[in-house]
Write a protein that binds this DNA or RNA. Sequence first.
DNA 1: GCGCACTACGTACGCTGTACGTAACTAGGA
DNA 2: TCCTAGTTACGTACAGCGTACGTAGTGCGC
Lengths: 234, 234
Amino acid sequence: MAGRAAVPEVIWSRPERTGRGPRPAYSRADIAAAAVKIADAEGLDAVSMRRVAGELGCGTMSLYNYVPRKEDLYELMMDAVSGEHELWEPSGDWRADMIRVAHQTRELMHRHTWLPRLMSPVYGFSPNALRYLEHCLACLDPFEGPYGTKMELVAMVNGVVTTCVGNEIATAERTRSLPWSEEQENAARIAYLGRQVASGAYPRLAASFAEDAGPIDLEGVFERALTRVLDGFA
Amino acid sequence: MAGRAAVPEVIWSRPERTGRGPRPAYSRADIAAAAVKIADAEGLDAVSMRRVAGELGCGTMSLYNYVPRKEDLYELMMDAVSGEHELWEPSGDWRADMIRVAHQTRELMHRHTWLPRLMSPVYGFSPNALRYLEHCLACLDPFEGPYGTKMELVAMVNGVVTTCVGNEIATAERTRSLPWSEEQENAARIAYLGRQVASGAYPRLAASFAEDAGPIDLEGVFERALTRVLDGFA
DNA sequence: GCGCACTACGTACGCTGTACGTAACTAGGA
DNA sequence: TCCTAGTTACGTACAGCGTACGTAGTGCGC
């Protein structure tokens, strides 16, 4: 009964195909693609084992042959989107390369808005994540310093991107046309906030809101945040 | 039927007590405390409506009189821990004050390890969160620049803290004694990682792991990250 | 060709959030 | 003072979740 492992394993240490028994009908890539498609279209909460199985066209429990636990499905999804990173020959200018990496990650997160929510140090060791990390380190070859510092730099850049995109997505959803219920909720939230600020209990917050009514330059915020972090390492 | 609002509201815009009907048996503070207690002891996933109601000693559905949706329970939790922030008279040195704020937030997150997972721009407008934000802005009074930049600074500091503590908690859980199953899972994960790195496909990653086998100085990583971000604004 | 390891999948269990109905209670208006 | 509307309290019920388990059917390695 190797199929139902008593000992928890990492999905990547299991071979995708063992050679015995019928050919698996789906590949891990198929499954990841189905899950990602659902998450992109309907949000991460819509990704259930039943739903993914339905998308693939197989029974719910058949999915458990490929994916022992739901957490492993997330792992597959994270790996799949990690694979969307375009890798290039490092230019020799680590700063420029890291900026390019950061922009690419940002675009990735905008394409898959569920990504920031799933971002966690746990998922950092899938094959495509390792390739991505190796690429970052290659870009940092010209960077003078120990690998420990390079790792910190990569982590910080990823952190900044995650934080910024998290904010960007939140404000985007606040602006976008929403189902009535969510629309109303946002309205209620903003109305409440306005009332609080107007109450005079938070003078600086009030001043901050009064300061500039122009649209927020999210692109600029991201660029500045990134620059500042890289400056900190230079 | 105001009790069952058809229009979604922010919980903070509802008065805790209306005056009509029987006295509520519990305060929002009671409920938040119960939920936080459970989350601290057994993790965020253990926080269910039934469980919190049980902790309070009331029926499950009674809880819905106080908390219309589970999301509002999270909002209560976030507000409660925001209230744990100790506020002080700004020193006049915004850098020192922000470092102090960051350290306090970090300690808060270590006390409540579920906090990074719940951290989201959505929960930034509860009463205690507003007090905290106002306090940060007060600390930044000596900072020369528009409020927009101050807000960015606060967001960046919070982002850094969240990112770092997320890593800290992950490595802590990797070290801590765990239930056998999770222990085995970590072992499997590390074994797999070791095999991959040893395969030679990721030379820089291998070099990074070989570089220093000493224990990671998480405190130092946090300190450096914070310093770099603040440097970026100075 | 035999047997075993694998795929496929239906059923079932315990858990979740929560809609809804009902009974008890209490403060405000007549 | 009593009436009644708005509240609290909570049991029942439902749809959905992750997944343990049992049972067929299939095809590779010996």
